[in-house]
Structures are given as C-alpha cells and as structure tokens.
C-alpha cells in the first residue's frame, strides 16, 4: 500500500519471492554452487582424473586436499568442482528438452482438442507406462553415452508431465475472453497459441521447468552412478559410482558428491516452490 503505481505481475511475484525465506536460501545456495563451479572451470582448473596423492586420504588432514582423496588418490575437491559443470549443464539442457517436447505436444493437444488431443494423450500415456530411468538407460546404451545423448534421453523420458500440465493450462485459457477476442480479430491459430495463450500459461510452466531441472539432475546422477554416463567426463554421480566398492573403507569419497547433488536439487526445488508460492499467493497457506 506504500506505492500508488500499479505493480506488474512479475514485480509482484518477485516481492512475494523475496519474503519467502526458504526460497531465498535456495537461491543463495544455488548461486553459490554455480559460482563455485564457474570458479573451478575458469580459475582452479584442477584435473579431476589426475592421481595426486595417496589413496583414501581422509578429509581435513592435508591442507591441499581439504576433502581428502578417493580410492585412486584423486583430489575430491577437484572432482566436485569439475563434476558440477556437466551435472548442472545436463540438468539444464535436459529440462529444456523436456519443456520443449512437453509444451509443444501439450499445447497442440489442448488447443486443437478432438482427435489431435486423443492421439497425443494416448502417446503421453504410453510414455508414462515406461519406467523412466530404465528407458533412459536403454536409450543411452543404444546410442553411446555423451552429455548430449544423456540430456536427450532424460528429456525423452520426462516430458509427459509437462505435456499434461500444458494441455490443462491451454484447455483453461483458450476459453477465456481475450482469446475469443484475439480470434475475433482474425488472429491465426499459431499466433493465438504462442503469443496469446502461452505467455498466460507461463507461471505454472516456469515452476514446472524449475522442478524439472531438479529431476533431471537426479536422473543424470543416477545414470552416471550406474556407469552409463560419459566415462571421460567427471560428474558427481560418477564419483559416487566409482567409489562405491570402497564405502566401508572410506566414507568421504561418496558422501561429498552425494551432498553436492542433494544441495543442488534441494536449492532448485526450494526456488521452484518459492516461485510457485509467488505466482499463486492464494495457495500460500497450503
């Protein structure tokens, strides 16, 4: 009530977001992780595969290796810094692919309805029947693992939920008056879909995209843990998978990468929850 100027929805959402302490914490942690990873890539530039010390050096003993070394004597800090990049990149790219496929199919189904809707929803249901991780494993194995195939595989298995969400939003919004108005002045279907309806469906889709990044990171970690990632690229999941045989001798080589994954996914989902609350102030008390 202090300002008379009307607030834009974005600004209002940001104001709500700023008041949300868990969401802010998530944003801070996430920024910290991204900054550390960037610093590792640009300044530190340690080779995560290089054997630098005796194996299984515990954390906090040698100042050069504050988190210790793994079963081969590789520096865990170097692994964490180098592994973050691929993990985050695959997460982000996979989320983009997921959103791309999901929004395109959901929009078509919701906008056109009829047989298009029936067909696309049957396809969506079909993809929901396939256990996602297993399907992704098959895809990655068939088409040889690289960051791109992994991101693509994660995208191909995770889009159905986005498609359902987009479809529901399109079904709701296409009945609203401004869409009818756009149609009345002769706007084309494509224009109505992408320029009129999609921007209005944006808030839930942005929230969904954020949460999808978290899911994609967990997927990537699972695949790398199973040894299905690119063996020449360090990632947090790979660190856990590689050291798994020795967990009873040394807890730290698996614990720190796991914490890194946990913190990243946690911060992403806190931000997602915060965005959700910011876009839907009425649902906040839930």
């Amino acid at each position: 009530m202090t300002q008379a100027a009307p607030e834009t929805p974005t600004r209002e959402a940001w104001r709500m977001f700023r008041r949300n302490i868990p969401a802010l914490m998530g944003l801070v942690i996430l920024t910290g992780i991204v900054a550390a990873v960037l610093w590792g890539a640009l300044v530190y530039q340690g080779d995560p595969f290089e054997i630098v010390w005796a194996p299984h050096e515990p954390p906090g003993v040698t100042p050069e290796f504050p988190l210790g070394t793994d079963y081969l004597g590789r520096n865990i800090v170097a692994g964490l810094l180098a592994g973050g990049g691929p993990t985050l990149a695959v997460g982000a790219v996979a989320a983009l692919i997921t959103m791309g496929i999901g929004i395109a199919l959901g929009a078509l189904a919701g906008y056109f309805g009829g047989w298009v809707d029936t067909l696309l929803m049957r396809v969506t249901e079909f993809f929901q029947v396939l256990p996602a991780l297993l399907f992704a494993m098959v895809l990655v194995t068939l088409f040889s693992p690289s960051l791109w195939t992994i991101a693509l595989a994660i995208g191909v298995v995770s889009w159905p939920q986005t498609a359902r969400l987009t479809r529901a939003e399109f079904l709701r919004i296409k009945e609203l008056e401004y869409v009818t108005a756009a149609r009345a002045i002769g706007a084309q279907d494509g224009r109505i879909m992408w320029r009129v309806i999609l921007p209005n469906a944006a808030p839930p889709l942005i929230v969904s995209a954020t949460l999808t990044v978290g899911v994609a990171i967990l997927f990537e970690a699972g695949l790398s843990f199973l040894g299905l990632g690119d063996p020449n690229v360090m990632s947090w999941g790979l660190m856990i998978g590689a050291n798994r045989e020795y967990i009873l001798d040394a807890w730290w080589p698996v614990t720190f990468p796991g914490l890194a994954i946990f913190l990243t996914v946690l911060s992403v989902s806190l931000v997602g929850d915060g965005l959700n609350d910011a876009f839907n102030p009425k649902l906040r008390s839930r």
């Binding site: 999941g237 856990i240 807890w251 994954i261 996914v265 946690l266 806190l270």
Partner: peptide, 22 residues
Amino acid sequence: ATIGYAVPVFWTGIMLIILFAS
C-alpha cells in the same frame, strides 16, 4: 518432504550401508 525429494535414492542407500555395516 522437501529434503526427501532432493536426496538421490542410491546415495541414501549407500549412507545407510555405511551406517548399518560399521
């Protein structure tokens, strides 16, 4: 619920193994 969603399931398993084995 927020934490449970963010923990990789295989890592939970490994942590439990460390806890229950040693």
